[in-house]
């Protein structure tokens, strides 16, 4: 019991260290630069306690829950030996986690406003809702495709830099032709798709696969799934902007 308590205390301290910069930055700008007292100090302090406790529990659960889960899946699929099933799983995972992503819902709604203002779609609620939904579908399908591509790369041992650099060149080329108002949203859509639960799970899956397949190195082949998941949405949203304009 005492060992458990000591371990918990250690983890809490490390969470505190993770959060120290953000507390310092906000306190510094509030007190020194803006010269204002905190609006509601008590609720800020209670909130900070929640953040620290939450981060501690999350990291504890990561090592005992999400990581083993991702590894168990990778081993299960590697034993099963069917690439098609593994790829189907990858697509579902990418699509399923992205379509419900709150950050993406927010960005898609803002993107619909931009499109309506620019005159690409009619400035009415129905057109905007349809546009936002279509955009979310596009991004979710592209993330599903990204995980498929990433898993395929791990299976085949393709070098990652060729695929990513190819993606960059594609983004560059599409930027030239895509309508200017979609470019900012497209670039941002790459960043918002990777959520806090998806990242550990997908990373554990990739590293687990690279570990269970003979001839693959976990560092060289295991990482990179997230990189694809943040690149393909940019390509697809740019293409979507060209099609709808």
């Amino acid at each position: 019991m005492t060992r458990f308590l000591v371990a918990m205390l250690k983890m809490t301290l490390s969470s505190l260290r993770d959060l120290a910069p953000i507390i310092l930055v906000i306190a510094f700008f509030q007190i020194v630069v803006l010269r204002q007292p905190f609006p509601d100090l008590l609720s800020v302090l209670i909130g900070l306690l929640c953040v620290i406790a939450g981060l501690t529990l999350f990291i504890q659960g990561l090592e005992s829950g999400l990581f083993p889960l991702g590894e168990a899946l990778a081993q299960g699929f590697a034993q099963k030996g069917s690439a098609a099933i593994l790829l189907a799983f990858g697509f579902c995972l990418g699509f399923g986690t992205t379509i419900a992503e709150p950050a993406l819902i927010a960005v898609a709604a803002e993107a619909a406003d931009v499109a309506a203002q620019a005159g690409a779609i009619a400035d009415e609620d129905r057109a905007r809702t349809t546009y936002a939904l279509e955009l979310r579908m596009v991004v979710a399908v592209s993330v599903g495709a990204a995980i498929v591509l990433g898993i395929l790369r791990i299976l085949k041992g393709w070098p990652i830099h060729r695929l990513i650099i190819g993606g960059y060149l594609l983004v560059t080329a599409l930027t030239v032709f895509a309508p200017a108002e979609i470019v900012g949203i497209a670039y941002d859509s790459g960043g918002v798709t990777t959520s806090t639960i998806t990242v550990p799970l997908v990373t554990a899956l990739g590293v687990g696969l690279a570990t269970s397949i003979r001839g693959r190195n976990p560092m060289v082949d295991g990482f990179g799934l997230i990189a694809f998941a943040s690149l393909t949405p940019m390509v697809c949203v740019l293409a979507y902007g060209m099609v709808t304009s």
Partner: peptide
């Protein structure tokens, strides 16, 4: 562990 992740993230 997954329950911990969920509760932790909510907090």
């Amino acid at each position: 562990g997954s329950v911990l992740v969920l509760v932790g993230l909510a907090l």
